[in-house]
């Protein structure tokens, strides 16, 4: 699992350069969309809809 950090660094710099120059805007859009989806999932997962509760004080007369 653990790889050479130096080797990883070189690869990621190369990857970043290519990706950044060619697909910068695309990635930003993707990141933004992904971030929003991620946040939405987390927020929605944490709460339930509250049932509306009514107590009706009434009579038959």
């Amino acid at each position: 699992m653990k790889k050479s950090i130096l080797n990883s660094s070189i690869k990621i710099v190369v990857l970043s350069t290519i990706v950044t120059s060619a697909y910068n805007q695309s990635i930003e859009d993707h990141q933004s969309k992904n971030n929003m989806n991620f946040r939405s999932i987390v927020e929605n997962a944490s709460r339930s809809q509250q049932v509306v509760w009514v107590e009706d004080f009434t009579g038959l007369n």
């Binding site: 809809q49 049932v51 509306v52 509760w53 009514v54 107590e55 009706d56 004080f57 009434t58 009579g59 038959l60 007369n61």
Partner: peptide, 21 residues
């Protein structure tokens, strides 16, 4: 209209409900 998201209970006032109820 909203069977799953609206819940109620009705309490009857003793002064406004017939004695045989």
């Amino acid at each position: 209209e909203f069977p799953n998201t609206l819940m109620t209970i009705e309490w009857h006032s003793p002064g406004y409900t017939p004695g045989n109820s």
